[in-house]
Design a protein around this nucleic acid. Sequence first.
DNA 1: TGTACATCAGTGAACGCGCGTTCACTGATGTAC
DNA 2: TGTACATCAGTGAACGCGCGTTCACTGATGTAC
Lengths: 192, 192
Amino acid sequence: MKVSKEQAQQNKQALLDAAGALFKQHGIDGVGVADVCREAGLTHGALYKHFADKQDLAAQAFTHAFRAGYDKVSTPRAGKARTLGTYLDAYLSKRVRDDLSKGCPLVSTACETGRQSEAVSRSFADAFVELRSGIEGVLPNAGDSGGDKAALANLMVAALVGAMAISRGVVKADRMLADEVLVQVHSVLDGM
Amino acid sequence: MKVSKEQAQQNKQALLDAAGALFKQHGIDGVGVADVCREAGLTHGALYKHFADKQDLAAQAFTHAFRAGYDKVSTPRAGKARTLGTYLDAYLSKRVRDDLSKGCPLVSTACETGRQSEAVSRSFADAFVELRSGIEGVLPNAGDSGGDKAALANLMVAALVGAMAISRGVVKADRMLADEVLVQVHSVLDGM
DNA sequence: TGTACATCAGTGAACGCGCGTTCACTGATGTAC
DNA sequence: TGTACATCAGTGAACGCGCGTTCACTGATGTAC
């Protein structure tokens, strides 16, 4: 049956929320469209009224998930300055490491993106650039190194993404090692 | 029919080679056991004479692929010293970025490992520790920062893995951006 | 060295299952009069 | 404002297909005598 326009919009958001969490948790290839729709309280046929296909859903869900997480971190709270530490704490958190459905989709889908459609790659690139800009904006002004902030921002995002991916990769076999990676990378980046 | 023991060993190696390349290219979830066996010149039933199941194959293929690539980089060539630059050049290469079947399995399966069995995580952890040791061994002695080489090695591996994953993630949408990430991260790490 | 035979790596049909996508259909919504 | 009806979001059966794994079977290998 037809539903109201507001209901339809709500359903689309529910699909994006569900897809964001499930894709991060099990990978795009590891989740069926039926799973996403069930999680959103719909049947699988409904998906194709909102998205062209699974790749389209993946691309939009990526952007949706990135925006949700990034706005939380980058929007300055009342009275609290947004610093490099804000990014480091938010990114390199053990709690996020242990819950795959949480966290930045850059980490969850980094390796997978190379195998997905160009639309997914586009979403990924936009998110990366936005995070990199945000971090570049909070870098301390001109350090002793001469202050090539742009290059440093690239390194920082790469290290954040890599550290979380590695920590998640090793945690099942060696929890102490996983914690060590997060802590050490946090400490080195904090001192740059 | 039965084959000679040497032939059987050769076939197992062929399975590991095929699995290593295909898993890196399409992800563990993205490749069927039949694909791996076909690539190795066998039928799918043969796989279960060498490996308990697909996860077992994935774990052994990971180690096999890491060893093959790492030995090539870390074994000092005659007359050539093994330096940090050796690692950086080998890791942050555009050629490797553009051929998913090549390169370090740490990058290819980083995000995926969190969803695989503990055996895969074990292989991943061992490889990470080995690469980190190798890099720690070529770090310049005691920089101005006080020389916490262990922490720096963690950062370097995280940055290498993250930079390659990001470069691969964005390359379909923005090749210049993908190149920029590799170059900038290379340059910053080289100066540390 | 020659023969008889147990071993077992590899074969390929078969299993149950879940996948992404399509499509005829339903019926509340929202518009035209 | 009230009624008739076109719209279209959502349903659920059906499609062809490939998946991981099992298993009865094959026949060259390699061993025991």
